[in-house]
Design a protein around this nucleic acid. Sequence first.
DNA 1: TTTATACTAGACTAGTTTGATAGGGTATAG
DNA 2: CTATACCCTATCAAACTAGTCTAGTATAAA
Lengths: 160, 160
Amino acid sequence: MVTTYIPKGRTALRSMISHKAKYALRALVALARADQDRPLAISDIAKSQHIPKKFLEQILLDLKHHGILESKRGKGGGYILLKPADRISYGEVLRIIDGPIAPLPCLSITAYRRCADCIDEQRCETRRVFSEVATQTRRVLDTTTIADAVAEPFETQLAS
Amino acid sequence: MVTTYIPKGRTALRSMISHKAKYALRALVALARADQDRPLAISDIAKSQHIPKKFLEQILLDLKHHGILESKRGKGGGYILLKPADRISYGEVLRIIDGPIAPLPCLSITAYRRCADCIDEQRCETRRVFSEVATQTRRVLDTTTIADAVAEPFETQLAS
DNA sequence: TTTATACTAGACTAGTTTGATAGGGTATAG
DNA sequence: CTATACCCTATCAAACTAGTCTAGTATAAA
């Protein structure tokens, strides 16, 4: 068989972001678009963004614990951005939800770990190449904020 | 709990490359360094690169099926590069082993799929941001070859 | 103060993927 | 003809994902 293996559930591969992260980002965009004086209810976000409500609860709670959101309970309650949208980067959200961004554990600052089978890290060719990937990815994700996402759309290019 | 969840097994996340891909790349580098006139045995690669032999068999077979390698059976057999090292890109190998490189299925050309819960793909903010990530990643991975990896090492930067 | 609303917490589950291992089969050099 | 080394398929345990379920607790409005 000379077919490329493509995992079913996710169409593609490990370099994909999780549904959870996608939901988190969409929810934050929705919150950034909403009235900042009144909390936005989970159920409203879930409905407008097509996200399973109970799953979204977990996600927003997580973001709250990490100081991104603030919540208000009771009737008329919901979530509000704690930090301004232009101070919430995609990288920050991804690190909270999916973990470190580095494509190899040995390239992560926040969660460095040596590869178990690595012979000489300093001379590892794979590490060297993916270091460049990590740098580029980080540059984009850490400089793009929820506020940028809320701004007018521009052209989206296809890739790979 | 205000702790960032980090998967145990892999230290980091979905944006990591798989062991399989790492093994494939390491094996190709080893093959590129070896004498091109004589096949290099799986067991030799496995030993020198610290890769489980039977697992490596699968990987090399896969690379052979995709026209990267050539094999010779029997005594004195093994693998040889079919394409020159400077014509084997990291991106090509990763697509064979791990699947499409795009961080979202809706950004992949080779395996495009619409996100099930997407409301308006053209205006999807997440898609727009990750499109840039995909472009950068692709640029690095498709222009770096096994031959580059074999060349002298330069400084490796940490990221994320 | 009642009651509806909304957040909090964590256990649980079905399904998929990963990273292997096992056990043969097949070709080839000597 | 036999030892060697690649070829191929099947199977498996552990981990991860994407949820769901249950059982609350806190707050605000009426």
